[in-house]
Design a protein around this nucleic acid. Structure first.
Lengths: 192, 192
DNA sequence: ACAAACTAACTATCTGGTTAGTTATAACCT
DNA sequence: AGGTTATAACTAACCAGATAGTTAGTTTGT
């Protein structure tokens, strides 16, 4: 047989590039087919519609995040650092996330909500056991850490607000990021 | 005359709503015309093209940010708080910014770059005079503050990562945000 | 009468999705 | 081994609706 799995894979790769560059509305199925070196109809046979192809690409790549990045409430600085590295290493995925957020407002997959709830619970526990300070609510902490760690990607609403060269030498940024997270989670003299 | 200025205004308002909802590629000129209650051709007479209409809408609304939000390197916590309030009060503009960032990668207006450079310079000076700590580079501080302050808007790449109800009672978030900025800029015991 | 403000109808092109058909491969039969 | 067949993999050509942008003309105030 003329390998169908390989074809699917090529389509998914081409779709990733296309969607990350143009979003759902801006993506062109013809362009994806051409880049994948296959007939457009194959896309519809394998993935049903443009929108479903998008969510397939997103889910597939999002799995990697959950697998590669274990949340660690006892060492949030390291988690933030790893998330930062991942974001810098995968700008396409960050763009995909941003597109999804803007274009698929309604769709908030159960998986993501569950994952969020678990993180919040972990943070709460870490605060109760004194591993991290109670300076901030778990809710604030989570969003703060996530946005800080991904603030240097294309997903930043202010775009290239940051020095475009900054991400070429990410080591310094990462150090500062970890320092910042440590500050936000450290016990202070005012603590009871 | 049948007021042309008012028509332009109505078009700009309708365009704001349309672009913020669907982005450039997803926006429909017909829909904008209908919402503005005018003929589609008027849009092309007044604004030349869909893309130019978008940038016009963006620039017009961005001016408000620069006018209403004076950067204050000597009180960054307050600046962050005001930026947060503004972002919460103007979700459409935040979305517009996000779209612009994704869809117009190349276009980075001089105004924005200049404004950034000015802020960096101010931060540097504030550090030299000891107004804020030198714990972080001005570059890191600026991006950190901007992303933190806008992390609870639709512009967040992780979408409704945060509790959807959180932004309904923003006062608590704002307090935490200001506290966080104070932590990041405060002199610590380790300082020389 | 004149020009600015506005409109209805049109067009060329694009685009997601479909149809109808072809080619390669493996299993089966003799 | 050679021929037959079923089917999975793939393709070229097509279509209907949508869409940015245009044209040619009408209304309205002065």
């Amino acid at each position: 047989m003329r390998n169908s799995e390989a074809s699917k894979e090529r389509i998914l790769e081409a779709a990733m590039a296309e969607f990350s560059a143009y979003g759902i509305a801006g993506a062109r199925v013809d362009r994806i087919a051409k880049a994948a070196g296959c007939n457009k109809n194959l896309i519809y046979i394998y993935f049903e519609s443009k929108e479903k192809l998008f969510t397939t690409v997103l889910e597939k790549n999002l799995v990697r995040v959950y697998q590669e990045l274990a949340f660690a409430s006892q060492d949030l600085a390291s988690y933030a650092g790893r998330l930062f590295d991942f974001a810098i290493a995968n700008p396409d995925l960050m763009r995909l996330l941003a597109w999804s957020n803007l274009e698929q407002a309604a769709t908030s997959s159960n998986e993501r909500v569950t994952s969020r709830d678990a993180k919040i619970a972990e943070l709460q526990k870490a605060q109760e056991t004194g591993q991290i300070a109670e300076t901030f609510t778990p809710d604030f902490l989570l969003t703060a850490i996530m946005t800080l760690a991904t603030g240097w990607t294309a997903a930043n609403p202010f775009g290239l607000l940051h020095d475009p060269q900054a991400t070429k030498h990410p080591a310094a940024l990462r150090k500062d990021l970890e320092k910042a997270v440590r500050l936000l989670t450290a016990h202070t003299s005012e603590d009871s």
